[in-house]
Amino acid sequence: MAEPMKIRAQMKGDSADIRVLMSHPMDTGQVKDAKTGQTIPAHFIQQVIVSVGGKVVVEGQIGTAVSRNPVFGFKVKGVRAGDKVVVSWTDNKGDKRSDEAAIV
């Protein structure tokens, strides 16, 4: 089951600084289990969508080059304190997670 994200969104000048920490193994499918010798199947986040105040501001495809438990940072203009930030991801196994936070 997908673990919650940690989202921080802060107004800095005229733009919001959004930081997202995601909890995900991000297995590349190229690593073998040290004990069993079996390849650990690929398991990674494929799609990330960030919306602020109901409007999609980032929609991205990511892959196995991204580290385990990744951190993302965005700067978004034209938003205000109090706006709701919603971050959601979908991984290659169809697991999903969506979390939200308000801009402070």
Binding site: E3, P4, K6, R19, L21, S23
Partner: peptide, 12 residues
């Protein structure tokens, strides 16, 4: 240190 994944484990 600004964005430390340790925070995910704090939450957990």
């Amino acid at each position: 240190e600004e964005d430390n994944p340790a925070e995910l484990f704090e939450m957990k």
